[in-house]
Design a protein around this nucleic acid. Structure first.
Lengths: 202, 202
DNA sequence: GGATAGCAGAGAGTGCCGCTATCCATTCAG
DNA sequence: CTGAATGGATAGCGGCACTCTCTGCTATCC
């Protein structure tokens, strides 16, 4: 309960309707918002500040859904302090070019591309400069996944539900994907590698 | 540099070889280990304690690769304090049954299945009880991705390289997947939804 | 009508985590 | 011989997510 008061103070939850100077009333919408906050923080692992940003993006009224998705993506992808490897940036640009994407002049422009470049930079720093080869097959698989995401979003009836499904689906979807990927790895490991060593033994 | 001393103290890096009481020698292996630690912490977002667990799993010599992957997966999937919804547990079990997996008697047995159940629980708590429908298409896409991961692992020559590629590929792969998924979403949003609203306007 | 229990709001305090700064003894370079 | 640097250990710091407490006020029970 003190946590709720803290969230109120932090502006994550709208203030309740004061029925008297010391009595506020909270309706279902507040509860829904509270659960959303917990979902973003618990499963999404977002900081309080990031949650606030996401909520702000959700609550901004006068934006197209496409722009809102972009704003939410920026909010949930806080940039890390990793310094970018120029070669990793080239990897990203090459990937974009291969997909016939619009030019990606500045990778640091968007938090998402920055995150991608940062990940590839770190991969390079530990000697995995071939990691970029995974981008294309990843996109291949993600096309199926993104289509499922879109279908799921399309089930929603109201605009508010669509927006929430975008946020929830993106963040919870990340965690679900992570877990299922682990399961897929374990299965592949069991089937292909088996319990014995693969490649050069020991 | 003080950070390295801290990592040494925390047992994340092995002590250097003392050439004299105040002079230790660190070789390439130390540097490689240090970069791995930073990779796990920076991109993987792991806590120091989790990094230590992962390193311990890596360094355990007498285990099959399959077991080692399992240990690493447990280490990098720290369970959240979310209480599990029984219906979400059923979702997970149904998913396992559909895949003809071995029975999953206890979802909390593994951190990975626990993470999956936790994510679905939180989805249910925010009203998305249909989220489990995404599990099958997610697995569909992830089969492609896991195959790419396996191919990447198979490129490694030594057993140590394989183990490191498993760790790095899993964690950095998560981040890369996240980023590319965002990009795929943005592309779908641009192509399908466009800049106008979809479904019931406003 | 008076005691009491309860809530809103706000500031200060707490615990943990990931460093960072300081200290001392040693020791190596010039 | 002197000064800068290193290893080892201890203490401190800053940020974050709460949590505690204190102050007014009020609604209610007796």
């Amino acid at each position: 309960m003190p946590t709720i008061k803290y969230y109120l103070r932090e502006g994550l939850l709208p203030a309740g309707v004061l029925t008297s100077p010391n009595q506020a009333h909270y309706d279902d919408e507040h509860l829904r918002r509270l659960r959303l906050v917990r979902a973003l923080a618990d499963v999404g692992g977002l900081s309080i500040a990031s949650v606030r940003e996401v909520l702000a993006a959700i609550d901004t009224r006068d934006e197209s859904l496409h722009n809102k998705l972009g704003a939410v993506q920026e909010a949930i992808s806080q940039p890390s302090a990793v310094e970018l490897d120029p070669l990793a940036i080239e990897d990203v640009q090459g990937f974009f070019a291969r997909q016939g994407e619009t030019e990606c002049a500045d990778v640091t422009e968007s938090n998402v591309t920055h995150m991608l470049a940062a990940a590839l930079s770190v991969a390079r720093s530990v000697g995995h400069d071939q990691f970029r080869d995974l981008l294309d097959p990843y996109l291949e698989g993600l096309k199926i996944i993104a289509q499922a995401d879109l279908d799921y979003i399309a089930r929603q009836s109201t605009r508010d539900d669509i927006i929430e499904a975008m946020v929830v689906g993106t963040l919870i979807g990340d965690t679900v994907l992570k877990a299922v990927r682990r399961l897929a790895h374990a299965q592949v490991s069991r089937d292909v590698i088996g319990d014995g060593p693969v490649g050069p033994a020991s």
